[in-house]
Design a protein around this nucleic acid. Sequence first.
DNA 1: CCTTGACAGTCCACTGTGGCATGTTAGCGT
DNA 2: ACGCTAACATGCCACAGTGGACTGTCAAGG
Lengths: 189, 189
Amino acid sequence: MRETVPARPLNATAASLLGFLHAGPLTGWDLVATAEMVIGDFWSLTRSQVYRELAAMEAAGLVVAGEIGPRERRPYQLTDAGREAFATWLDREPGPEQIRYPLLLTMAFGEHLAPARLAAFVAAHRKAHTARLEGYEALRAEAGAGLGPFAGATLDFGIRYERAVLDWFDHLSPEVGGRSEGGAPGGPA
Amino acid sequence: MRETVPARPLNATAASLLGFLHAGPLTGWDLVATAEMVIGDFWSLTRSQVYRELAAMEAAGLVVAGEIGPRERRPYQLTDAGREAFATWLDREPGPEQIRYPLLLTMAFGEHLAPARLAAFVAAHRKAHTARLEGYEALRAEAGAGLGPFAGATLDFGIRYERAVLDWFDHLSPEVGGRSEGGAPGGPA
DNA sequence: CCTTGACAGTCCACTGTGGCATGTTAGCGT
DNA sequence: ACGCTAACATGCCACAGTGGACTGTCAAGG
């Protein structure tokens, strides 16, 4: 008599794993890699959690573990119950986004910090965001429409977000770590 | 011999509480309210965690609890050790931001979802973001420069972010839930 | 006097993060 | 053939963070 846990509603991370399993059996390792690539820019997950969710979902009957292959690879396969749980999850109202930006925290307490230090942080983040934007734009140039409409739309979100952040950096007053005039005349393309 | 835990590095939430305590003693309840107002838009925290961090910080000697007042109010006061821990924390390199946006997840798996359903989600989020932007702009119009440069800069981030999201919504193709032509001609101000 | 609701704090289960530990195997140089 | 290394693959743990349920306090109003 194999008891399956009553079926609590899925969390977004577990549901995403089920989503990826629609394409065929995958191991925890593969799922982490896939998720990082496909949804990593707006949904973070960790190895630890993936393996934990897989174990829980197996107990709940949403996936079944296959034979252990080479290098301890343990492929998981979607069940009908899993397919249904995923469909139910996908149909829910997606909640509001959450942003956690430590630099803004630092800035909010800026009165307690040496101005030059804050400026250095801002400069470092500007650089990082520039690199991310370039990465996204290169991806769109290469892959272009080959991504399909859905991945294209999420990529577009990333591009617009990064541009907004960069714009914000560019309009920051020197008082709060923005660069003073003469840095790099002529804004971004 | 009062043992104080060795001094592990502060987490951002605990540090923020110390930051707010610079203005004078506050209770957990007050801290939650303050934090929600000042940093709530880019750093989420919950009652549960605030009380837990306060207890931990008291054990570590970073704050001292005062007398319990009316309605069980227990004010916490900053110690010198707390002031120093805050300064050290503030001086660290702020890490990258994290965004978790369930709507993008839903969209990424859009091929498994009825198009009309996705469009409804998108419409609901557009509305919510419009409201948020209006709230921010009203705040800037009312409070204006009275916020000070630091709060002004973080508010500005919020405004630019919301505008970027709204722009993204406005350029979404109908295929991925964007509204077809004829919705509301003439974009946002 | 009693109900209601805002205030204030506590507790718990679950989600999420990051690092450490462990074992496996392919590839490489010697 | 041997051992080294690096990538592969999973598991475990402590801590951070979330959201809801729960208890208790007090002011205001019917």
